[in-house]
Structures are given as C-alpha cells and as structure tokens.
Amino acid sequence: MTGFLLRRSAAMIALLLVISFVTFSLFQLGPADPAAAACGQECTPARVAEARVALGMDKPFLTQYADYMSGLLHGRMIGAPGTETLCEWPCLGKSFQTNEDVTAVLERALPYTLSVAGGAIVLWTVVGVGLGLLAALRKGRFTDKLIVGAASVGVSLPIPVTGLLLLLVFVSTLDVLPFTTNAISSPFGAAGPGAWFLNYLLPWVALAVLFSAQYIRVTRSSMLETFGEDFMRTARSKGLARRGIVLRHGARAGLTPIVTMLGLDIGLLLGGAVLTEQIFSVPGVGFTAVHAAQSGDLPVIMAITMVAAFFIIVSNVVVDAVYAVIDPRVRAA
C-alpha cells in the first residue's frame, strides 16, 4: 500500500512538471503578446520593449521557464530593472492588471470556490446516491419511474437556466433568500455559518440539480448490476435480512464506481465552477479566470490552469488510493 502511494505520488509530480511546461509553452508561444497586454492602453513601441524586459521576455524560453519554476519553489524578483519587487514564495508571477502577486489573487478566490463546491458536493452526493439507491430498490415501480424521470429532466437543465430560474423565483419574486454577496467567503467569518449557508444555498442547488441527476443514473444502474451478481444470491442464501444484503453486500460493491466519479468531479470543480460563479457573481477561481481571460492577464490564467490541473491530478491519485482501500483485488495488482 505504501509502495503503491509512493509510486503514484512520483508519477503525479512528474505529470505536474510536464503540464507546467506545456502550459508555460502554450502561453509563451501563443498569439497573444504578453508585453503588449502588460503595458496597458497608451502603448508605444518603446514601452512595449521596456515591458518585455520587465517581464523577462528578453531571455531565452528555457531560462524563463527555469525562472518561473524557481519562483514557484522559493520566490523571486519581478519587474523592470531597478524597480523589481519581490514576488513571495510560492511565486506564480504578478498580475498584469494589478501588479499583485498571483498567489494572493488565488488565495482570495479559493475560499469562494471551496464554499460553492463543498456544499454542492455534499448536497448532490446525498441526493444523487440516495435517490439512485431508492430507485434501484424500487425498480420498475412508480417511485423508480418518478426518480428516473426527474433525473432525465435534471441532466437536460444547463446550469445557467437553473441558476437564473432560482434567482428569479427565490430572490426576485419570493424574496426569501438574499442575493449572493462577496462579503461572506467562509462559514468561519464574522457573519457566521447560518448566513454563509443561506448565501450559498442557491449556487449549491443550481449545481446539485445537474450533478444529482447524473449521480442518480449512475448509482441506479450500478446498483441494479450489483443486485444481479452471484454474491448477492449467496448473501440471500445465508438468510441475511434485506437491509444487510443491500447495505453490507450491495452498496459496498455497487457504490465503488461512484467513488471514481465523485473524486474526479471534486477535482474538476475545485478548479473553478465557472458558470455558477458567473451567474451568482461569486468571485471564486472560475470567476477570476473568466475576468483574467477577458483582460489578457496571462500570469493569472496560467496559474489557474496549473492549479486546476493540480486538483484533477491529485483527485485521481486520491481515487486510486481509495479504490485500493475498498477493493482488495486492486491492492494486489
């Protein structure tokens, strides 16, 4: 098990290096000129050249990459000669827009994304797996048909539609929930967990409608497949009660695919719930990424790309590890 984790971690680090290099290359070699973007509106060729030096773009490509990576490891000085400022560890560059450390930008955005993602994940896992299990147990009956029908509607509702509908109904018309505010970024803030909960309830629901529908479908079909397994017949032959058969024998095997799906979805969402954050104006990672893209703020875009990749890769490793804990056959392989 330890060897397994060590191997996977080593592979993960190697993969992250490759991704950082590829991302860096794409942004450097891409059509956008970072110097032009950095020098702002009233640009002259001379100022572009200055900016080029300030950004270190006069150096060879590989040197730039090495600088970037060393900044990530122990900080570095950035800026035009004579006016350099320190970019603290872990340095991901400085924003073209605000000259702020990108790390600080991310630190500010991340709690919002965690708030949106965290609640939504809990909500859709409980609802999706719960209803999926229920549908599987009631296969072919009215409850099953109702749940499957609802799931079909759910998967076909895009997040912007659900989000705007929720806002229209609960905020504008009924006025029972507040419009999402930037003031609350975590349940531990001054406003307290109650306000945090109400603040993020609508984004959670908007995300959960889509994801629950997917989880219902996967849970239901995976459980039905498991119910047909020989070991379920064995469990019944032992004289176990239905509850024990379904929970101890069925769910353990049938919910394994959900672990994979959940891990990957979490990884994906931590890189920014772009649509949800846009619609509810939550200044999270996704929201920041959209604005950085609009204003050509390359260091920020680059950093977010790497962070998103990091979350996805880490969640993959975590899924593998969890799998090895659940399924003894994976441990051996």
Partner: peptide, 18 residues
C-alpha cells in the same frame, strides 16, 4: 442458511470480492 444451504457453480463470483 440454517436448515437449507446452497453452494454454487462458480465460487469466485458467489463470494463477495471485498
């Protein structure tokens, strides 16, 4: 299981893998 018990053709699939 108490008065009647059963064994099956394929014991690998008849036992829970986990």
């Amino acid at each position: 299981g108490k008065k009647i018990a059963m064994i099956f053709q394929d014991p690998l699939s008849a036992m829970h893998p986990f």
